[in-house]
Structures are given as structure tokens and as C-alpha cells.
Design a protein around this nucleic acid. Sequence first.
DNA 1: CGGGCATCCGGCAAAGCGTCGGTTATACCG
DNA 2: CGGTATAACCGACGCTTTGCCGGATGCCCG
Lengths: 145, 145
Amino acid sequence: MKELDAKDRDILGILSKEARIPLKTLAGRIGLSRSATSERVAALEKSGVIRGYRADIGQMDTNLVSAFLLVTLVSTPSMGVLDQLARYSEVRRVSSITGQLDLIVEVEVPSIDRLNTLRDIIATHQSVQDLTTLIVLRRDIERVA
Amino acid sequence: MKELDAKDRDILGILSKEARIPLKTLAGRIGLSRSATSERVAALEKSGVIRGYRADIGQMDTNLVSAFLLVTLVSTPSMGVLDQLARYSEVRRVSSITGQLDLIVEVEVPSIDRLNTLRDIIATHQSVQDLTTLIVLRRDIERVA
DNA sequence: CGGGCATCCGGCAAAGCGTCGGTTATACCG
DNA sequence: CGGTATAACCGACGCTTTGCCGGATGCCCG
């Protein structure tokens, strides 16, 4: 794979926010001809720097509840917990972290009741020592792809 | 905003993985004419269900460091902090939450040094009372994208 | 039964795209 | 120093895709 120059970075920066703008517009913004831009984009796609294009879907189910579960385990690592978490589609992400805590579990559930259910299931797992539930009240900034 | 039917969901499912396929191809897969598909996609964009299209960038993200910053404010809400956070592109997401904590700030930085710098900047903000840094060691589950 | 409404289709003109030959810039080496 | 190979750029050509329109079809409700 070749090195990326400044114009390639410009292309990536623009396409990562607006992936469907016409090549003509993109070419204008980075200061190249349409065909040169076309070739650069094609190269970026072929080399794997651009892995694909995704539509950014807003929440179609507006009343979803998001929460962070801060988990302390009795002993790390504990694969049993991860296996169990992986079973629930409401679990969006699990991160192992530094510090006293061990895991941050991010969940999206249709209701508070469901959140409580999920919370209890996880909290009663044998290798979970402590669990704090943080419900998301508002998304102040959202730049996740 | 209208209700989403099965074909709309099909469209979203396909576009969320391949946002740049031709309308003709998309129409073929969901079993509608090209023009009808075009109108549906346009409606989904206009109503905000499709918020935009993003290029999925691969290579450069490999050695990024992710971290959660757990922030306690002196008084909520404090718009000043959010304004400042929004200035840094490394800040991926900020959530207001329940409990003793006030904000969970998610960041992605190129180095630990940069993380410390960012941490110090935020911690010294006048309305930040307390700040805990949790560095992500490993992503055990990832279903965000 | 018969409008009103939403959704569908096919076709046309315009815009977008990949590709090509020709040109310029840079780097390399006898 | 001159010649040549390489890479990147541009403009143009022809094909594909898109946006938009008129008209057909199905459904609801008075």
C-alpha cells in the first residue's frame, strides 16, 4: 500500500462525513480534476483504506434506553461473563479497561424494565462482584460512525 | 415522520452496509422499481431516518487509544464543558447520565500522551469537579458500527 | 359507487461515472 | 547534461445512473 499524502487525507476526511457527494464536488474541494480524484478514490478503495460506505441510520425506535454498566469482576479475565453478554443483542459494546473497574458494558434496551432485567441477570453472574448502572439521559455529542 | 414498513427496513439494512450501490441494484434486491426505491430513499433521508453516508476508513485507526472519562461537574448542566469538548475531534461521544457521575466522555486519541493532555485540559475546566480516566485495554464486543 | 390519496411503474433528459490518450513534472542513470 | 522511465494530472468520450414527470393501480372512506 502506498503512502497517503495530504490530498488523500482530505478525501478521507470529506468522505467520512459525506460519502455520497458527487466526484465533481469532491474534486473541487480538494483542488484536483474530477478524473484524478476518481483515480485516488478508486486506489483508496482497492488498497483497503476505504473499507466501504455506510448509511448512518438515526434511531428508528425513538424510545430506546441507553445505559452504561460499570462491572467489577471477582477475577479477570472471566470469559464466562463475556459469553453470556454476547448472547444478548441489547449489549452493544463491551470494553476491558484499566483501573478498579474491569468492564464497561454498553446496552440499548426498549424499556427501563428490560434494563433492570438485564442488569439483574448480569449482576447475579458468579464472577461479577459489583455492578453500577448509569442510564443515559441525553446524548450531548455523538460522533460514532 | 411516517411508519417504516418491511421494505424500508430492507433498504436501511442494505444501505447501512453498502451505501453506494446503484439504485437499480438496491431496487432489484428489495423487489421494487428503481423509481419507487428512489422515492423511498429520498423520504428516508428527508425524514432524518438516514442521517448521512459515511466512508468506513480502515488503516489509520489501528493504533488509536480509546478511553472513557467519567466526569463529575460542580453543577449540572454546564454548557461550557460541552462546548469545549465539542472542539476536540478526538471526543467521540458525550453522554449525560444518572447517578453521582454527570458525563461519560468517550475519546479516541493517537497516543497516551495525547490522552493525558486532553485529560488535563478537561480536568482543569472550572466546572469539572472530578474526573476518572479509564483506558480501554481491549474491545471484547463491538456491535456499534 | 366514486373521488382522494398513496404508491407504484416506465420513460426522458440531465448529471455522474470509468476510462482513455496526451501532457507535464519528477526522479534516475549512463 | 541529456535521455528516458515513472507517476500524476487533465480534458474528452461514451456508457450508466439519477431525478423527475405523467399515468396506472390499489385502497380507504363517505
